[in-house]
Design a protein around this nucleic acid. Sequence first.
DNA 1: ACCCAGGCGTCAG
DNA 2: CTGACGCCTGGG
Length: 326
Amino acid sequence: MRMIKQFQIYRDEYQGPLNLDLTINSGQTSQPSWKENEGYFQELIMFDNQPYLVNITSSSSENEDPMDVKIESPVNVDIGALKNKIFDIFGLNDDLNILYKFLESDPKLFPTIKFCHGLRLFKAQDPFECIISSISSANNSIIRWSRSIRQMEKKWGDEYHFLSGKYYSFPSPQRILMAPEHEIEEFELCGGEKDLEKCIDNLKACGLGYRGKYIKQAAQLVQDDIDLNELEKMDYDEAFQILLQIPGVGPKVADCILLYGFGKGEAFPVDVWIKRIICHLYFSGKDIPVPKIRLFGMEEFGEYAGYVQLYLFHYARKSGLMKTLK
DNA sequence: ACCCAGGCGTCAG
DNA sequence: CTGACGCCTGGG
């Protein structure tokens, strides 16, 4: 059986503007960009352990037309549930009008609005996936990180066939634990049957480098010790401390996980660019240590900290400020 | 064409 | 605090 259901998302169902293209392609390290095909963004969404291929209009996101959503699945599609999931992923529950009032109240932040109109937080579809992909993003470029995620999905995720092609889910902790860390381990695992050069089904071969070890340790912790449902219920500070115990997770990565995986909008992930931008805008270029920048951001921007980080980064990229700071 | 320095966040020393 | 980690980018 194969089911396709279609619905619209109207302009008055969410508050403030939405630029879907900008949201998907602004390099947020929550999920790789969705595929673009015949005027739609497409991605496999796992919901209640069932696969759904979501197709969402990629054009006219800035005008008054509703967005088309088509969902293809081998199982019955609960439109309400999938719609909620889509709202979560694209930050459609965030009121950008209120955000913009806040940004307007700070002359340093005001200019970010016109560069980021309709930009929303692009959330991960699942907390475990978010943990692994955030670890992979550390000390890494967006392109390299996206490639690694896609390769992990292809090697260890489940394959699903849809009308427009094959898609792979993000592998479970169990699957990641079964994957060899590097080619030597894979070689030993097959008892020397394969040539060492042909051992490419390991984490390191996904371009993850030394992060492979962290990823397996993280998967082990999630399987044995860390209950992600419990983490979801904790307040920001408590969850932050727990996440820091995961190998490969420092303050920046923990904040990304809290922001993109658990929807904690008060998280303020500080990478080198945010550091440079904040030092430039708020400390007249003086060099302030990263941990202080983080505390400053959380104090100064409160519940909007995550959005401010997103807007400052994109603003710096588009306005040319980044080139100046480099 | 080539090489090699520089950049990225976390960890270990 | 500093250097190492792996890989890609970009300048020479």
